[in-house]
Design a protein around this nucleic acid. Structure first.
Lengths: 139, 139
DNA sequence: CAGAATCCACCAGGATACTG
DNA sequence: CAGTATCCTGGTGGATTCTG
């Protein structure tokens, strides 16, 4: 197994949670499992952009962190099912909130995130921000 | 400026939110600013384990993503103040929830996260999980 | 005080091929 | 079907130094 060379950071609740949720696909994994997508093959179908390898890695971490549990049925063909632990369930409000927030602000976020990528005019970006933030402020 | 070589992933609300919150210190930065810690020097004091450089980088991203705004007072000595935008405010319930969740489960999480580091006996870890999850389940 | 410039170690995550 | 082994690249974040 692997031993980290850089120690993990401080012990603020934020960091602990971050540690659990940190991984490109972890929120999606939790979300999928919460939706009843339990079997690895189905999970892969649900997240086609992720590799088997990485999904397995992150599932393993989620398991080690006590938020999902894994049940292996020794049949043929082999069957495996993941599910949320109570601790994992307690995380779902946060996951859902993150999902909603992202969806609610999608048009703005997509614009502003993409612009960060394509080194475009800062002024234009700022204008977009101001425009949107006005709207938010009014709501 | 820098052009990303790897395109950013899909457009699910979860990913958008992740993009905004992704950065070792971003949740803490938002939290600190929400608490009224506005000036860079104070922010650094609040997060002593982070480098000026990285804090600046992540603040800039938060700004570009429209969740914080930066006000420069052209005085001497130079004064700068960050604050949450309305969009950033709308993120605070999530930040707070993450903070609470981490704090609420700290004893368990600390144990289970640390053990991941020091490649210790899996059986022991599992025992710890089971023990804790029992408690959670009962609550 | 605020922050840009350099340099670099680390490691997360993708591609691919393989085992049971 | 589920999972592992190997290899490799991009980019995050730390250390340090320098400017206004």
């Amino acid at each position: 197994m692997y031993i980290r060379k850089i120690p993990l950071p401080l012990h603020c609740g934020l960091h602990l949670t971050r540690e659990v949720l940190n991984g490109k696909w972890k929120p999606n994994l939790l979300f999928a499992i919460a939706e009843g997508i339990k079997r690895p093959s189905d999970i892969q179908k649900a997240l086609p952009d992720a590799t088997k390898r990485v999904l397995n890695l992150q599932l393993k971490e989620l398991e080690e962190h006590g938020v999902v549990s894994k049940k292996v049925y020794h049949e043929l063909p082999l069957r495996v099912e993941y599910s949320l632990t109570p601790l994992g369930e307690s995380l779902m409000p946060i996951i859902d909130a993150m999902n909603c927030w992202g969806d609610a602000h999608r048009p703005f976020l997509e614009r502003v995130i993409m612009q960060g990528e394509s080194e475009s005019v800062t002024a234009e970006r700022k204008a977009a921000c101001v425009y949107y933030l006005d709207k938010v402020g009014v709501e």
